[in-house]
Nucleic acid binder design. Structure first.
Lengths: 151, 151
DNA sequence: TATTGTTATACTCTATAACTATA
DNA sequence: TATAGTTATAGAGTATAACAATA
C-alpha cells in the first residue's frame, strides 16, 4: 500500500458513480410519487412476494419502527396492502396491489434500460474484464462493512 | 440495446459497490461524531478553505436553510466557526477549527487508505483498464442526471 | 420467554416561504 | 432590486424504549 495516485483517482471515480447512480434513481422514482426508501421497500415486496414486516426490516437493514412508517406511506398511496398472515396472528403480510406491481415492472424495465445504456457499448471482453475487477473490489469492500442482512 | 444479461449483472455490481461504499464511509464518520451530511460539509470547508454558506449550499447541492442547520450542528460540536466576512457584512465565512482540520486530515488519510485497500492489489494495466471503462460509464451517466453544481 | 408490530418520543436532513440586513 | 442568511413551518427517514398481542 504505497500511495499510488491512480488508486485515489479510481476511488474518486467510484464515488462519483455512486453519487450519480443515486441521483438518477431518485429522479426516476420521484416521477412516480415514490421516495427512495419507499421504492426500495416496494422493490423488495415485488421481488419476493408478500412479506412480513420483520422480514422487510431485515432485508432493508432498518428497524421495525421504520418499516411501519414506510408501509403506512405505501398503503396511503395504494401501492401495497396489509393482509393477515395465515398461521401467525401477530404478523401481517405486506402485499403489492395491482398498482404496486405495475410500478415494480416499470422499475425492472428502467433498470434493464439503464444497464443497457451504461454497459451496452462495451464488447464482451471489456465488460467481462470490468466485471471481474469490480468483483474483486467488492470482495475487499465487504469485510470493511461487516455482515449483510437479508436472505 | 438488446438485453444482454451481463449488462444487468454489471449494474448490480455497481449498485452493490455504491451501497457498501456509502455504509463504510458512514461507519467511519459516525465513529468521529459526524453525520454524513455534516462530514460532507466539513470536507468542503477543509478542502476549499473558509467558505460563505451560499457557496457551500451550491457545492453541496442543498438549500440555504439546510446549510444553516448543518453549520449550526458543526459549530455546536466545535468543528467550525462562523467568522465575519471582510468586505460583505451580510455574509459569514464558515471556517474550520483546529479540531475540524484534524478531522479533515483524518478523512483524507482514510480515503487514501481505502483507495489502497480497494485498488492497491491491481497491477497498473488492470487498474488503467478499469478506470478507463469506468470513465466511459460516467460519461454515459452524467447526462441522465443533468447539470452538476459545484465550485 | 421470545417475537411481531405499534405508540411515544426525538433527532437529522431536507424543502419552501417570509423576513432582515446588506449590496 | 438582488443577495446572504435566519426564522417559521412541514414532512420524510431514522432510532430507542415501552407496550400489546400472540407464539
Amino acid at each position: 500500500m504505497e500511495d499510488r495516485p491512480a488508486d485515489e483517482h479510481a476511488l474518486d471515480r467510484l464515488l462519483e458513480a455512486t453519487l450519480l447512480l443515486g441521483r438518477d434513481m431518485e429522479l426516476d422514482l420521484a416521477s412516480q410519487g415514490l421516495t427512495p426508501s419507499r421504492a426500495h421497500l416496494l422493490w423488495q415486496v415485488g421481488s419476493r412476494g408478500p412479506c412480513t414486516q420483520a422480514r422487510l426490516a431485515s432485508a432493508l437493514g432498518v428497524s421495525a419502527r421504520t418499516v411501519t412508517g414506510l408501509v403506512d406511506g405505501l398503503v396511503g398511496t395504494g401501492h401495497v396492502t396489509r393482509e393477515p398472515h395465515p398461521g401467525d396472528r401477530r404478523a401481517v403480510l405486506v402485499t403489492s396491489t395491482a398498482v404496486g406491481e405495475q410500478v415494480h415492472r416499470r422499475m425492472a424495465r428502467g433498470k434493464r434500460g439503464l444497464a443497457g445504456r451504461l454497459f451496452g457499448t462495451l464488447d464482451d471482453d471489456a465488460l467481462a474484464a470490468w466485471t471481474t475487477t469490480t468483483d474483486g473490489i467488492l470482495d475487499r469492500l465487504r469485510p470493511l462493512v461487516g455482515e449483510d442482512r437479508g436472505p
